[in-house]
């Protein structure tokens, strides 16, 4: 199966010469539809850099990042912006909902920014809210929601419309353990429904929801676990 996200031998270096910081050193990674991959590692190991590269917010020093088979480096600035709006969704630790918009308006916003009519955007937003089980709070503002509800809305926003790649940066960080678990359950369900997910976390308990867990140390994948690759995957790797 083709990957939604693929990193091929990706390096990212900040600065030059002796002061250069090698944030990532040769990371190769694929995330397929229906697959949730967790990235674990201590702070400074390159987790955030990895997420930024995957979302096209940053570019690699060497290597290639492909989203739905297209190399981000080969896209024009405009095309890249379109990929970020239409294909990639983000979920952050602090939810990042706009306080002056209701839940449904927050979720509809990326579609409206992309030129979708208000009515169609609203319909898609309600569908997305229903998929994460929070249609009842569609008309509420963020400060009228619990943390868990805000994060569900953020997941709905990340996956509204046709978007198929969700990048989650410590999405349960600010939540208590029960609420955090409920949020991961929703993320897992959305991925099972066909999205691809990359989850950065420092908590193994949360990484347990992923199909595969990779460990980053000083910018290198030192360890990877999860179900063993199938024969098809192996052929794909060798190709």
């Amino acid at each position: 199966m083709s990957s939604v996200l693929e990193l091929r031998g990706v390096h990212r270096t900040h600065g030059r010469g002796p002061a250069a910081v090698h944030a990532l050193r040769g990371v190769t990674l694929r995330v397929r539809p229906g697959e949730l991959v967790a990235v674990m590692g201590p702070s400074g190991s390159g987790k955030s850099t990895l997420l930024n590269l995957a979302g096209g917010l940053d570019g690699p020093s060497h290597g290639e990042v492909l989203v739905e088979g297209r190399s981000l480096a080969e896209l024009s600035r405009r095309e890249l912006a379109a990929v970020r709006r239409r294909t990639v969704g983000y979920v952050f630790q602090d939810f990042n909902l706009l306080p002056s918009l209701t839940a449904v308006e927050n979720v509809a916003l990326p579609l409206e920014l992309d030129g979708v009519s208000v009515r169609r955007a609203r319909r898609a937003a309600l569908a997305s809210l229903s998929e994460v089980g929070v249609t009842d709070i569609a008309g509420r503002f963020p400060d009228q929601m619990s943390g868990g509800q805000q994060q569900r809305v953020a997941i709905a926003r990340a996956l509204v419309g046709e978007r198929r790649l969700v990048l989650a940066d410590e999405p349960t960080g600010a939540l208590d353990s029960g609420t955090g678990e409920a949020v991961l359950r929703v993320l897992r369900e959305r991925v099972d429904a066909g999205a691809a997910g990359l989850l950065v976390t420092h908590e193994a308990r949360h990484a347990g929801w992923a199909d595969r867990v990779i460990f980053l140390r000083d910018g290198v994948v030192v360890d990877s676990s999860g179900p063993l690759d199938t024969a098809d995957d192996l052929l794909e790797h060798r190709a």
């Binding site: 193994a204 347990g208 992923a210 867990v213 360890d223 990877s224 676990s225 999860g226």
Partner: peptide, 15 residues
């Protein structure tokens, strides 16, 4: 590393 991998796999099963 091999112990950690085994631990993560067990964790995935439980989850």
């Amino acid at each position: 590393q091999s112990q950690r991998t085994a631990g993560v796999r067990a964790l995935q099963e439980y989850t």
